[in-house]
């Protein structure tokens, strides 16, 4: 098993990610990610999906992999990485189901996913993790190595292979279609103080 439960709240996930690993991960789990992961943002996603649509071959085999949505700052000499926090995941929503169909098992970013991605995670048995947005310096401490493996012309948006050790994240959307934004809000809202305001039952997050 590549998922090791450390406490009620915390698990260690070592890539590649298997179907059994995905089944183990529940919303609200604090996850420490170990092993090889890949980074890609909008521009790299766009290229990957264009390649697939044209019947071509991707630069990496997505089966069992985790893609992290980030565009790091340049590393200072002597550092493995610059700041490397997550970008807004929703911008990847139009591409994600297609990559899940290719065998991608996990993606990681910040913010929430649209209903189509949540349904695709259920359909393809995969999971969405959230790393803490705006904590790029802290997250850089868990990076062992970064190398550009494709789309070098995209600069910070190139496709990179990254070695991580105990990189912290949270399960935001699990393979049973559960979403932490909706469930967390329900648990912690103060209905009395909300007054006449009616919170939405299911949030479809604004585009952007």
């Amino acid at each position: 098993m590549a998922v090791e439960r450390l406490s009620d709240l915390e698990v260690r996930l070592t890539t590649p990610v298997t179907d059994e690993d995905v089944s183990e991960l529940k919303i609200g789990d604090h996850v420490l990610v170990c092993g090889t992961i890949y980074t890609a943002r909008d521009a790299a996603h766009n290229r990957m999906v264009q390649t697939l649509d044209a019947g071509g071959q991707l630069p990496i085999d997505l089966k069992g992999q985790l893609i992290y949505y980030t565009g790091p700052t340049p590393a200072r000499p002597g550092h493995a990485s610059g700041a490397i926090g997550p970008t807004t995941s929703m911008r990847m929503d139009p591409f994600t189901p297609r990559l899940l169909a290719e065998g991608l098992k996990a993606c990681m970013g910040k913010g929430n996913r649209g209903l189509e991605v949540q349904a695709a995670l259920k359909q393809y048995h995969a999971v969405y993790l959230m790393a803490v947005g705006g904590a790029g310096a802290m997250l850089s401490q868990f990076i062992k190595k970064i190398e550009v493996i494709a789309y070098e012309d995209l600069g910070t948006e190139s496709l990179k292979r990254v070695e991580v050790e105990d990189f912290p994240a949270v399960v935001m959307d699990d393979c049973e279609g559960r979403d932490l934004l909706n469930e967390g809000r329900k648990q912690w809202r103060d209905t009395e103080k909300l007054g006449s305001y009616k919170p939405s039952e299911k949030i479809i997050v604004a585009q952007g």
């Binding site: 604090h30 700052t73 610059g82 700041a83 490397i84 904590a135 790029g136 310096a137 802290m138 850089s140």
Partner: peptide, 23 residues
């Protein structure tokens, strides 16, 4: 836990001269 990580972040950023956020 997330707030602890955010607090760690501003300490590390200043100490190691790594930007607070990659954006």
């Amino acid at each position: 836990q997330i707030l602890v990580e955010i607090i760690d972040n501003f300490d590390i950023a200043q100490r190691e001269m790594i930007p607070l956020c990659q954006d």
